[in-house]
Structures are given as structure tokens and as C-alpha cells.
Write a protein that binds this DNA or RNA. Structure first.
Lengths: 335, 335
DNA sequence: GTGAAAGCGCTAACAT
DNA sequence: ATGTTAGCGCTTTCAC
């Protein structure tokens, strides 16, 4: 069907090997034959067969990215950054979303094991982490390098980790609120480290932790909206709420606003991530900036190094990015 | 490195062929050998080499999706739907974003031509369409089926098209506004068909078209924000503005709101797409619902049919999805 | 039911 | 500088 190297070789009266060399710009080949082969390839509209090349080169020039969902702006922004980084080295990205399902992650691990990608970035948390991590280690040992983003493992030499300090981030947000007069501070979202940071800030400031102020739900706007509905049933609202991501924060705000509770006048809402939208929401969101683009870029760079079998220095094996609280209009100081 | 069929064949004392047959659940193979081979494969933690299989099967079980950018919620939602649809048939999605650059699209066309995917969905508009379409037709003739979403071509038999009626959608929005008392209606966004629909609605209602009320910018929140800044410099604001997508609408709203212009009291803003966020924005967005999920699903189904060489009925070659105006709080009736 | 052998399209020694 | 050859790991006739 499609033209192959063989077709070209025949037409140019050279061997397949020579044709291959010529098309791969080997200097070994005579300039005249080089030109001839190139010309014929052009005429025949030749494109090398990636599948065949992948088989012999043992490489697909493709890397896999596993994230919970594409619809989540945080991961979309990170994915974009990763894609742009690897593109420069001629790699393509295969985007794999798990929809927060553990089986899906497993599917991808096996897919990668089949040699579909030259390396992978995992940016997912979830159940079965220990078991899956074992399989991922297996993958790495079978020569498919992996980098983790915001995911832990006990062996950084095998799998480098790019992250921010989740505990510290939550601590800083809570601390900021406390410094601005808040004492009744709620927290929304399921993240052990984050919750610990939040609690630590409270206890460091001698504020009693009220478990009624801690909520869980999906990390989506809808999830936030639902928590908002629950909040409304509370006898007395906290004066501030920290949300695990900006989308939840928006959901909460929407929910409260609909019930005529004003943000930030009646309650301060702070998000995490600083997604593109957060600056443009009404009110614009106070949020913890996570350098997703930079993290994605770094993860991609480290992965490419790994794929090229370059050694990583020890400070490339665990990289903790700094975060920054961006104060906008969804939070305020109280007396 | 990794275990191969050969390893298994040797350990099981059968030929490679038999091992292959057994693992592919052929009925030809003796039950005992079947069991033996399966067991050994399990023990050796065998995963077939996708690259080798792809070469001989001439198929990668992967399909490509070309969109402008992942960060755009419209495409993210559609991508998710496509992914979920093809997953059921065992296919994987390779997500290709062009960042609105024509060269990027070209890159992907060539990539696909190399046999990386079994089929592709193109959901991008842009420059060089005619030239690229020729190459895409070439791709199709070389046995890589393609489906277009919101993109035109003159040969539906070769490339099926899934779309909504852009003209009609814009016409309906403008008409709705007019029916609700608006006469000074602006339009933001670069889309010939949309603009035509908008203009037709105005002229059908004997409203003079004011070119000062038509703006262009990137289809992002930032783009909308910038247009908002321009609007503020106008001698008199229109009473309503139609935006080419919801993000632009949000950007415009944010921009106007910051200048103390109230939406919808002072001006009505209507978006297009009905992205997840639009319901939760403040104010919630009046917008034209585009059934992205359904469109993505249908595109995927049609593509799979094509890949499986099933014939398409003529009404599967051009599918126009209906749209629906969702009235929320960013627009109002005036006298 | 099983094995031998050919071949998918390409690359990379090695020989010439 | 060019051709010969051997494979990459798998599927798939075709004999046996």
C-alpha cells in the first residue's frame, strides 16, 4: 500500500541498506546516491514506517503521561507544558487519564510494559498505590524509565520525584488566615499531608481543631458545590475555608453565593493550584500557586535524561518546588 | 531484557508458533499445552511486545486526536468522551495539540502517516486548511481513516464530518437577544459562519450592523479580558455581547465587572459551548450548549467503524448535532 | 494439534 | 561507498 524503503531502493537501483543510510543522512553515503535516493523518496511521498523502526530501535519516540483527568485544568496545564518540552526532542505524548480509577492506572502500566512508550510520567494518586508502585518499579527495571509527580516512592534512584511540599503549603495557607484574624477555619479535600499541615498550623496557634469543619468530596466544581450545600446546614459557618483545589473553591463559592452568603465579606475561601481561571473568577481567587508548568517541564527533562541513559545528580532525584500564596479577592482580614 | 515469546516457548517445550497461538486463545491448541503456556507466561510475567505486534498486524490499537489545545475545556471534555468511547474497544488515545499552529498540524499528519495510529480525529481549524486537507486525504487513501469534527471538507465519503450548524447557532443567540429587547448587540470571535449567522439575525430584524461592535481575539479568558478592555473605551457600550466561547465570555465579564459595569444589569453577555464551568461562574453564563461529549462519542464510533472497514450509511457521513440555548444569569431582558 | 518458515519494514554489523 | 545478512518479536500460512 504505502511506499516502503524497498520501493525506493529498487527505483534508485541501490540496496535497501544504502537507501536507509541515505535517508538517515549518514555521511558514509556518496553525495550523488544521497541526492538520488532523497529525490525518489520525495517523489514517492515516502514516510518511514514508525512501527518497523520502533521494533528494531526498541524505541517509539513516545512518552506516556498518566493523570487523573484531562478536564482538570491543573493537569491540562501540566500536560501542555510536558508536551511542549518533549516536542523539542522529537517525542510525542500519549495522554492517559485514569478517571481516578485504580484499574485504569493498572491498564496503563501494562500498556507501557508492552513497549508502547519510551518512558512515562505518573501524576496520579489513588488506591492500590503500593501494589502499583511495585509494578511500576518492574517497568523501570524492564527499561522504561518513569518519573513521579506529586507521588511518593521510597526509592528516588529508581524513580525520581517532582513535587511540592503538601504539608507546608497547607500549613502556610492556614497560617496566613490565622495571621489575618481567622480562628474558625475549615478544610475541604482528601489529602493526608495537606490536612496535617492545616491541623499543625491551627495547633501551633492554639486553635482547637474542629472535625466538623473538615469535609471531603470530589476535586471538582460539583464536589465543591456539594460541600457548600453541607456548609449551609452548619449551625455556624467558619470564617474561612481552605479548599484542596481551585475548582472546589469555585464550587463552594458558587454554592454559598447562591444562598446570599458573601465571599469574602461573610467568609473567606482559599483555593490551591492557581489555575488559569482563578484570576478571572468572581471574586478572583486567593490561592496557593503551584508551579505546574515548571514541574511538568522539569519532569519531562528528567525523564528524557533517563531515556537517554544520562546519570542524574542526586539533587535531580527529588525535586521540591516552592509554592506561593497569591492573595486576591476571595479572602479578607477580619478582626 | 524483557521476556519474549521465545523464552516462553523454550520453557514450555513448544514452538514459538504454538506459544503464540495459545496466548491468543486459539481453539486449535491442545488444552494441556494451552494451560502450560499460560502458566509459564504468568510466571515469567510476560507482556507481548506491542511494537512487534504492531508491525505484523499493521495496527497499533491507538488513535490520534488533534485539537488546538488541551487547556481549552471544550476540547478537554470532548477528548475525555472520545477516550472513554474507544477504550471499550481496547484502543488508546494519543492526544495531539497544535497550539493553533499550522506547522504542528502538519507534524501530526506526517506522524500519522508513519503508521503511529490506526485512525485519527481532527478537531482543528486554522490556516492552510486546503493544503492540509489534501494531505489528510492522502493519509486516508493510505489506509488511515480520519473523522473531522467541526471541520469541513468536500468529500464526506472519504472523511465523515461531525459538526453543529455554526451559522444557525449564532443566528439563534442573536435572535434570542433581539426578542428580548436588545438592539445593540456585539460579537466577539473569529468565525466566518458564526459572524454571518449573527449578522443575518440582525438584518432579518432590520437592525443595522455596526462593525465597531465586532471584535477578534484569542479564544481564551485572557483574549476575552482584552476585548473587554477595548469595549470600555467605546463611546457607548452595546447592551449585549455574544462571545465565540465561554472562556472569552468570562474574560469579558471579568474585565467589565472590574470597571464596575454590572452583568447582566448593564450588559448581557452570552457565551458558546456550555463548558462545565459556565454553570458555576458568577454570574452563571447564558450560553449555547454544544453537545461535545455526544459529538466526541459519535466521532469515535464512526472512526472505529472505519477502522474496522465497516461501510457507513450516508447519514453517518455528515452528522449535524443540534444545539440549545441555556439561559442563565449573565443575560437579561431589556425594554 | 504442532512446528517450520516466511515475512512485517526497518536498522546495523560486517564484508566487499 | 555500497551490498549482504541477520535480526527486532511477533503472527500466520502451510506442511506434517
Amino acid at each position: 500500500m504505502s511506499t516502503t524503503l524497498k520501493d525506493i531502493a529498487e527505483k534508485a537501483n541501490v540496496s535497501i541498506a544504502t537507501a536507509s543510510l541515505a535517508l538517515n543522512n549518514s555521511e558514509k553515503v556518496n553525495h550523488k546516491t544521497y541526492e538520488k535516493v532523497k529525490k525518489i523518496a520525495e517523489e514517492l511521498n515516502y514516510t518511514p514506517n514508525a512501527r518497523a523502526r520502533a521494533l528494531v530501535k526498541k524505541a517509539t519516540e513516545t512518552i506516556g503521561l498518566v493523570i487523573p483527568e484531562v478536564e482538570n485544568p491543573f493537569f491540562a496545564e501540566m500536560a501542555q507544558s510536558i508536551k511542549n518540552t518533549i516536542k523539542e526532542s522529537g517525542y510525542n505524548l500519549i495522554l492517559c487519564s485514569t478517571e481516578y480509577k485504580s484499574e485504569e492506572e493498572l491498564r496503563y502500566i501494562n500498556l507501557f510494559k508492552s513497549g508502547l512508550v519510551d518512558g512515562a510520567i505518573f501524576a496520579c494518586l489513588g488506591d492500590m498505590m503500593e501494589e502499583h508502585n511495585k509494578m511500576i518499579i518492574d517497568l523501570v527495571k524492564n527499561n522504561t524509565p518513569v518519573v513521579f509527580v506529586d507521588r511518593e516512592i521510597n526509592n528516588y534512584t529508581l524513580i525520581p520525584v517532582i513535587k511540592t511540599d503538601l504539608f507546608e503549603g497547607a500549613y502556610n495557607i492556614a497560617n496566613y488566615l490565622i495571621n489575618n484574624g481567622h480562628k474558625k477555619i475549615g478544610f475541604i479535600g482528601q489529602s493526608e499531608e495537606r490536612v496535617e499541615g492545616y491541623k499543625k498550623a491551627l495547633s501551633d496557634n492554639n486553635i482547637k481543631i474542629n472535625d466538623n469543619y473538615i469535609f471531603y468530596n470530589f476535586l471538582t466544581i460539583e464536589g465543591g458545590y456539594k460541600v457548600g450545600q453541607k456548609l449551609l446546614k452548619l449551625a455556624k459557618l467558619p470564617t474561612a475555608i481552605i479548599c484542596l483545589n481551585d475548582e472546589m473553591a469555585m464550587g463552594v463559592i458558587q454554592s454559598l453565593t447562591s444562598a446570599n452568603i458573601k465571599v469574602p465579606e461573610d467568609i473567606s475561601i482559599i483555593g490551591i493550584d492557581n489555575i488559569r481561571m482563578s484570576e478571572y473568577y468572581n471574586p478572583s481567587l486567593t490561592t496557593l500557586h503551584i508551579p505546574k508548568k515548571e514541574m511538568g517541564k522539569k519532569a519531562a527533562e528528567i525523564l528524557l535524561k533517563r531515556i537517554n541513559r544520562e546519570k542524574l545528580s542526586s539533587d535531580e532525584q527529588l525535586i521540591i518546588f516552592p509554592t506561593e500564596l497569591i492573595v486576591r479577592k476571595s479572602s479578607r482580614t477580619i478582626n
